[in-house]
Nucleic acid binder design. Structure first.
Lengths: 190, 190
DNA sequence: GCAAATTAATGATTTATTCAAG
DNA sequence: CTTGAATAAATCATTAATTTGC
């Protein structure tokens, strides 16, 4: 795949780009790119796409660098996350990822009812509703497709309050456990 | 004696939450929240509701942020550009230290078609763009005033603009050198 | 010293995610 | 649920640094 010789920034161009980057510019849009390009062309041959790619790459590699630093710092946490992933979050039957290049998705099926400080979420519909303590049932509304049945009121999973390490077993929950596919193990910054 | 102090995530907790979010988690269900909470409690006091609310807020603010950026970015960049043109792109120091080897100057002229993350840039024809998808080469023509109808193509991002008219390029570089004091230090929240 | 060989940086492309409009 | 638009992540490919054997 022979590409034409790639752009090699002159020191002047590089310094200007770095200044702009340091100044906070990260993702210039086309009009700005064109203007920058026009100015940089005073110092050497350059195209808009060079500017575009430069910012993309510089930003990405900045993140990458910081990510590497942080993941060293947070190695323990990373291992902990692996533990979570391996032993708690990942449904065994999802362990083989059929997608070739690491594609992962989050299955949204299954349902659970979550009560949190009066807020209840019914995940079978994707909606949620507010549940007032003391009242049987107050108000319901939904985010998606209007299938909420507020009458059912199955608050079978209650948490909160007290030391979080004391995890009430949700095995009594008759719904399938919500799981995630493989978590990416990278650290996210910003 | 008053309200309990609100949860303040430790850095470790925050990183892990961000990682999970980055990994695709948006609206964890009760069992998952329990497990996350249990593990995060290794790093500091935390309750399930904190996790629940964190995801709710983070998701909402992500959307909000994106909306704001999209609606303001154009204006923002125009301001940046004024600053760039005024203070930064002409740098006497750089001229006093020319690059030794033979970079040659190729000024840009005419209207420009810029395609980012797709393929190519055509700055000469002024009415034509081309991008590649897979092995096919697709072509199109720009609309009247420099806006084109991107007809298809899954992920290509096509942008363009009219002639880069308002560039006071001025090969006379007599401006005083400025640093980036006035440049906005944060232009993007991404 | 000096190239060939090897490795590190980085420009250029492709693929995957995300949000939200239709 | 599908799709467009934008962008981030991953990857490919080439140039620059550097190492290495002479």
């Amino acid at each position: 795949m022979s590409r034409a010789t790639r752009w090699c920034p002159t020191p002047e161009q590089l310094i200007i780009l770095q200044e702009l980057y340091r100044g906070g510019l990260r993702t210039p849009k086309a009009p700005l790119i064109q203007k920058i390009t026009a100015h940089l062309s005073l110092y050497g041959k350059i195209q808009g796409k060079n500017v575009f790619y430069w910012f993309q790459n510089h930003k990405a590699r900045d993140r990458q660098k910081l990510r590497k630093i942080l993941s060293k710092q947070l190695l323990f946490e990373q291992q902990e996350m692996n533990y979570i992933q391996t032993n708690h979050l990942v449904n065994p039957h999802l362990h083989s990822n059929p997608h070739p290049s690491g594609y992962h998705h989050q299955p949204q099926h299954g349902s659970a009812t979550f009560i949190c400080q009066g807020m209840t979420e019914d995940t079978s519909t994707g909606g949620y509703y507010v549940w007032k303590m003391g009242d049987d049932l107050l108000k319901g509304y939904e985010a998606e497709n209007g299938l909420m049945t507020t009458s059912s009121c199955r608050h079978d999973c209650v948490m909160m309050e007290g030391p979080p390490s004391a995890i009430p077993s949700s095995s009594s929950n008759n719904r399938p456990l919500q799981t995630l596919d493989l978590f990416p193990t990278r650290t996210q910054l910003l």
